[in-house]
Amino acid sequence: MGSVGFSLSAVWNGSTALSPTALSIAAAGVLTCAPLFWSLPTAFLSGTATAAGLAMINSVGNLAGFVSPYMTGALKDATGSASIPMHVLAFSLVVGAAAVLTTKKHIVNR
């Protein structure tokens, strides 16, 4: 849902009404997956490794929150279009979803 929302915001780039609607769809898709994502490290890791894994995930997430706006701006400046950064965000969500969906069930449900 997040990927679809980002892609639609790129397609509806010129529309004042449709673009924020698409970004709202993207936000709904991204924010609803966050609580589900945080249950994965505890399924893979145990003990102190869980604490270290959660800390690393939080650190990388905070770094991404800093780097992502700069990357988006740099792509917009380099291409002259706001559509390309939205497609990059959509693609990164698809890659993340594919990584989670290809995880073997016996690893998660142990």
Results as ranks from 00 to 15, higher is better:
residue 41 P to H: 09
residue 62 N to E: 07
residue 42 T to Q: 11
residue 60 V to S: 02
residue 73 G to S: 03
residue 39 S to Q: 08
residue 40 L to I: 15
residue 11 V to I: 15
residue 34 A to I: 14
residue 21 T to L: 15
residue 34 A to E: 04
residue 76 K to H: 09
residue 29 G to Q: 01
residue 43 A to T: 10
residue 40 L to C: 04
residue 73 G to R: 11
residue 51 A to D: 01
residue 44 F to E: 05
residue 50 T to M: 15
residue 42 T to A: 14
residue 72 T to S: 05
residue 62 N to H: 12
residue 30 V to A: 11
residue 45 L to S: 03
residue 50 T to N: 12
residue 63 L to A: 07
residue 33 C to H: 00
residue 67 V to K: 03
residue 40 L to G: 00
residue 10 A to I: 08
residue 45 L to Q: 07
residue 56 M to I: 13
residue 74 A to H: 08
residue 42 T to R: 12
residue 12 W to N: 03
residue 61 G to A: 06
residue 56 M to Y: 12
residue 53 G to H: 03
residue 46 S to H: 11
residue 75 L to F: 11
residue 60 V to H: 11
residue 17 A to H: 10
residue 70 Y to N: 09
residue 79 T to A: 07
residue 57 I to K: 03
residue 71 M to L: 15
residue 50 T to A: 15
residue 65 G to M: 01
residue 51 A to H: 12
residue 67 V to I: 15
residue 79 T to E: 07
residue 46 S to R: 15
residue 22 A to W: 11
residue 13 N to C: 01
residue 45 L to V: 01
residue 10 A to P: 13
residue 38 W to K: 00
residue 54 L to R: 04
residue 23 L to D: 06
residue 12 W to R: 03
residue 78 A to V: 02
residue 74 A to P: 01
residue 59 S to L: 15
residue 67 V to W: 00
residue 36 L to T: 14
residue 73 G to H: 07
residue 52 A to Q: 12
residue 53 G to C: 12
residue 39 S to W: 01
residue 71 M to E: 04
residue 19 S to K: 13
residue 58 N to M: 11
residue 27 A to I: 11
residue 77 D to W: 03
residue 48 T to W: 12
residue 68 S to M: 09
residue 18 L to N: 05
residue 34 A to R: 05
residue 15 S to C: 07
residue 60 V to F: 11
residue 26 A to I: 00
residue 70 Y to A: 14
residue 72 T to F: 15
residue 42 T to K: 13
residue 74 A to K: 04
residue 55 A to M: 10
residue 59 S to Y: 10
residue 77 D to G: 07
residue 58 N to R: 10
residue 72 T to V: 15
residue 74 A to V: 07
residue 43 A to K: 15
residue 57 I to R: 02
residue 46 S to W: 03
residue 38 W to A: 08
residue 49 A to I: 00
residue 27 A to M: 05
residue 74 A to N: 02
residue 63 L to Y: 06
residue 30 V to R: 01
residue 28 A to M: 14
residue 31 L to Y: 02
residue 12 W to Q: 12
residue 51 A to P: 00
residue 37 F to P: 02
residue 44 F to A: 10
residue 22 A to T: 08
residue 53 G to D: 11
residue 42 T to N: 11
residue 29 G to W: 00
residue 29 G to V: 07
residue 67 V to Q: 00
residue 72 T to N: 03
residue 70 Y to H: 09
residue 76 K to V: 04
residue 53 G to R: 06
residue 63 L to I: 04
residue 56 M to C: 10
residue 65 G to Y: 04
residue 24 S to F: 13
residue 36 L to H: 04
residue 71 M to N: 01
residue 78 A to P: 08
residue 79 T to C: 09
residue 72 T to P: 06
residue 51 A to M: 13
residue 71 M to C: 11
residue 14 G to N: 14
residue 60 V to W: 10
residue 18 L to C: 07
residue 77 D to H: 09
residue 48 T to C: 05
residue 52 A to H: 04
residue 38 W to Y: 15
residue 18 L to W: 12
residue 76 K to E: 08
residue 65 G to C: 01
residue 64 A to S: 14
residue 73 G to N: 08
residue 54 L to Y: 10
residue 61 G to S: 09
residue 39 S to P: 01
residue 62 N to P: 07
residue 61 G to T: 04
residue 31 L to C: 06
residue 44 F to T: 04
residue 71 M to D: 06
residue 11 V to L: 11
